[in-house]
Amino acid sequence: MKLTLHIWRQADANSSGAFRTYELNDVSEHMSFLEMLDVLNEKLITDGEEPVSFDHDCREGICGACSMMINGQAHGPDRKTTTCQLHMRKFKSGDHIWIEPWRANAFPVIRDLVVDRTAFDRIMQAGGFVSVNTGNAPDANANMIPKQNADLAFDAATCIGCGACVAACKNASAMLFVSAKVSQYALLPQGQPEKKQRVQKMLAQMDQEGFGGCTNTNECEAACPAGISVDNIARLNREFVSAVLTSAD
C-alpha cells in the first residue's frame, strides 16, 4: 500500500520541532508499524538523510519502550495494542498518518519521537516497592492469597510503564500509572504495612514531576495497551482517603 507520513522531527530538547512529510510506496499489510518505520529509515539513510529516532526494544508489547501518538491516538487505532504490535493491516492505501511523540510537560522530548520518561522511575522510587531485603522472606506459601485478589493484583501489575495514559489525558495525569502500582500492593498482604505512606508519597511525587490531576475522563483506560482498568483509580482514591484520615502524622 501507499502511505503519506507526517512525522514530528526535532533535533534535540532545545530545538523547536516540526512535522515533515514522507511518502512510502510498498508497505505490506503484514508489517508492524515499527517495521514500516524501519523501511522508511532505510530509505532515508540511502538518501543521506537522518533517520527518525524512536524508542523501541522488545517489539512484543511488553517492555513499554515504544511510544508514539498515531493520528492523535496513543499507540494508534487498535485497542489494547502497543505501537510495536500494531500492524499495517489496520490502515489502507492512500492513508495519511500523523506521528508525534508523547506530549506532556513531565515527558520532555529528547529527539524526534523519543521522550524522557524518567519521571515514572522517580514516582516508583517514592514508594513503588515493598521493603523487604534479600534473604528475609518467609516461605512463599506461608500467606494464602485468595485467588480473586491475586488475579486482580496481577491485572494491575501488568502495567508496562509506557506512558500512553499520560499522553492520552488532557491533563497529562499519571493517575492510571500510579494507581496500578498502588492497587497491586493494596490487594496483597505483602503491601499492607506500608500502604499509607506509599499512596501519599507516590501521589506527592506525581505532582512534583508536573503531571496533572485526574478529572475522570477515562481516556487513560481507553489508551492503555495493557488494559489497566480505571477501577484502580477508584481503589487508589479510597486508599488515599483512608491513609489521610487515619495517619497520625
Binding site: 518467609p138 512463599a140 491475586a150 493484583a153 500492593y185 505483602q190
Partner: peptide, 11 residues
C-alpha cells in the same frame, strides 16, 4: 520466597 515477599503476583 523472595519474589512473593516483594509482591510478585504469581498464579
Amino acid at each position: 520466597d523472595q519474589c512473593v515477599a516483594q509482591g510478585v503476583p504469581f498464579a
